[in-house]
Design a protein around this nucleic acid. Structure first.
Length: 578
DNA sequence: GTAGGGTTAG
């Protein structure tokens, strides 16, 4: 009697607190045999991932009724479904070490987790163990094996596991299809696709997605048209394909035509506009979206930071905290927010983030670390930055560049150089940003020879110097008084020199009271910028410094004539090219 | 088994 009553309550346990209350009742009444149902219900109805539930369930599993294979399986599946792959494997191993035989659910889930993490080390023994436990006759487990081997590129093993399946279902076929697509065998994949007896949306989506990823939108589009029942994912794949080709017009056409847009559709479009720098269109979509979730906030905040609008990013971050108090920002949100603060020079923000991170138990991953490294370097907290850098799981081009850039800003040429040497030794390819940092480090230290060597070595890494790199070189040569050389370098540029480049020459001309180059540089700057006030007053200053008062006055008068505000010019000189 | 959010410069 009480048994069925409890079961009734259990099925309505959708919140952890309720589950805890019912569980207390179970224990008091010694109905522990119902614990597995409680575990199952609690995990099954949990939509948002919560660490509290995991902790709670783990406690149950360690307790009186912990020898239940079913409950362990539920937890393994829960973790895998919420993309906590590392933990999935950990709990599975924990289960194994506790002497619990695995359920087919547990094995299927842990295989998926291994696949996602590309973890063959654990995957192989799990396969062997499943065999030993007689689980390899189960379609789900067998299909899981196909999925694991497919994802890891062992297409022969995947094929073998597939052939062993007595009654293949569509998921089994799709896993194999995935394997051929993953290993780049598109023709064989196509043959498998054609052989699938009952193609479902995933079968179609897999093959369409592989064309879209390759940028072959012709094939992607015609398959999409041929697809009988399109799922939202099909539309999103097509939209994503056009976004990757920067065909926002076409992406928008499909987006507008899509019958049931979901969060993914909106985010795909917003991030597409982000990459093209079309903040306005991104904003427009963001405003139109009715139910904004955390992910779309993340996308829009990133849009602002990536397009040099850090203030807007922070405003939106504040809004996100206000309006969605139940949504916690995570390491992804924070990496953008840290970047925004760094752009604004709010170097003290690091302290706030640190306490926020510890308070909310947010894990610091490599990407968040990289943005913090950038922040610390700009704030002059080198010890912290270097420590964080050495603690990275995997150092890449971006993190090295952040460090080198920081050294560049702070004139630490020696450190920049040794970081650069280290990354080359580790075969991490430098990019244009790396060289911006390195060059500015040499420039700030007046190491002209080193700077030249570095500039010329860019081509060895298949990199073309950009106008910005030329700008730093001109600045470096100019500061060293080698104006003629700087001018020659500008004339040799394969692209149109920008205002920054000429501005650097103008600045150097002022430093060395050189009228000739000052005039040349200024004339170009005036042509390139809408507000020439700053450049002109700088030229006037050069005239004055060599005693050409009349010329200085003429230039100043011309500024007045244009009724332009002189104070603007002063701010340009102060904030001029470094 | 398919689709979405992040880090370095200017």
């Amino acid at each position: 009697m009480l048994d069925s009553k409890l079961r009734f309550f259990l099925q309505r346990c959708v919140v952890l607190e309720q589950a805890k209350q019912v569980h207390a009742q179970l224990v008091v009444n010694r109905y522990n045999h119902l614990e597995p149902i409680l575990v199952h219900q609690t995990l099954h109805f949990t939509k948002e991932f919560s660490r509290n539930i995991v902790t709670y369930v783990k406690r149950i599993l360690k307790g009186f009724n912990g020898h239940d294979s079913f409950s362990w399986g539920c937890l393994v599946r829960f973790l895998s479904q919420h993309r906590k792959f590392k933990e999935t494997v950990d709990v599975y191993i924990d289960m194994h070490n506790s002497g619990i035989p695995p359920s087919s659910h547990a094995v299927t889930s842990v295989l998926r987790a291994c696949g996602k993490m590309e973890n063959m080390v654990d995957g192989k023994p799990i396969h062997a163990q499943a065999l030993k436990n007689g689980l390899c006759g189960c379609v789900y487990v067998q299909t899981g094996l196909v999925g694991l081997y497919s994802r890891l590129g062992y297409i022969e093993l995947a094929k073998k596991a597939f052939d062993d399946i007595a009654e293949k279902n569509t998921v089994s076929w799709n896993s194999l299809l995935h394997g051929y697509l993953e290993s780049g065998e598109l023709d064989e994949a196509r043959r498998v696709f054609d052989k699938i007896p009952e193609k479902d949306a995933v079968s179609w989506n897999l093959i369409i997605s592989s064309y879209a990823k390759k940028g072959d939108m012709g094939n992607a589009c015609s398959l999409f048209s041929a697809m009988p029942l399109k799922s939202p994912a099909s539309w999103n794949i097509l939209i994503g394909g056009y976004v990757n080709c920067r065909e926002m017009k076409l992406a928008r056409t499909y987006f507008d035509a899509m019958p049931q847009k979901n969060g993914v559709s909106w985010i795909t479009m917003i991030s597409g506009y982000t990459k093209l720098g079309d903040v306005q269109s991104a904003e427009e979509l963001f405003r139109l979206m009715s139910k904004k979730d955390k992910l779309v906030y993340d996308a829009m905040i990133a849009c602002y930071t990536q397009n040099g609008k850090p203030k807007d990013a922070l405003k939106l971050f504040a809004q996100m905290l206000e309006r969605n108090s139940y949504v916690q920002p995570d390491e992804i949100t924070l990496s953008s927010v840290v970047s925004a603060n760094s752009q604004l020079g709010n170097t003290s923000f690091g302290t706030w983030v640190e306490s926020y991170i510890t308070e909310h138990g947010i894990k610091i991953d490599d990407l968040l670390s990289t943005s913090l490294i950038d922040l610390y370097m700009k704030g002059g907290d080198f010890a912290k930055a270097f420590k964080m850098f050495s603690n990275l799981n995997k150092k890449d081009t971006v993190s090295y560049s952040a460090m080198i850039m920081g050294c560049g800003i702070n004139g630490m040429a020696t450190e920049a150089n040794s970081l650069f040497t280290a990354m080359i030794e580790k075969k991490i390819p430098p990019n244009v940003v790396t060289f911006t940092g390195l060059l500015s480090a040499y420039s700030h230290s007046g190491l002209v020879q080193e700077g030249y060597k570095c500039f010329n070595s860019m081509k060895d890494h298949n990199l073309e110097p950009s106008a910005d790199h030329y700008g730093i070189m001109v600045d470096m040569l100019g500061r060293a008084g080698r104006l003629e050389e700087a001018y020659e370098l500008i004339k040799s540029m394969p692209m149109q020199p920008n205002a920054g480049v000429w501005g650097a020459l103008l600045l150097a001309s002022g430093l060395h009271n050189n009228v000739e180059f000052g005039e040349i540089a200024c004339s170009h700057c005036v042509k390139l910028e809408t507000d020439p006030t700053g450049y002109l007053s700088h030229l006037a200053m050069i005239y004055s410094s060599v005693g050409r008062w009349d010329d200085a006055r003429t230039v100043r008068d011309s500024i007045k004539e244009k009724k332009l505000c002189k104070t603007l010019g002063c701010s340009w000189v102060e904030g001029s090219y470094h």
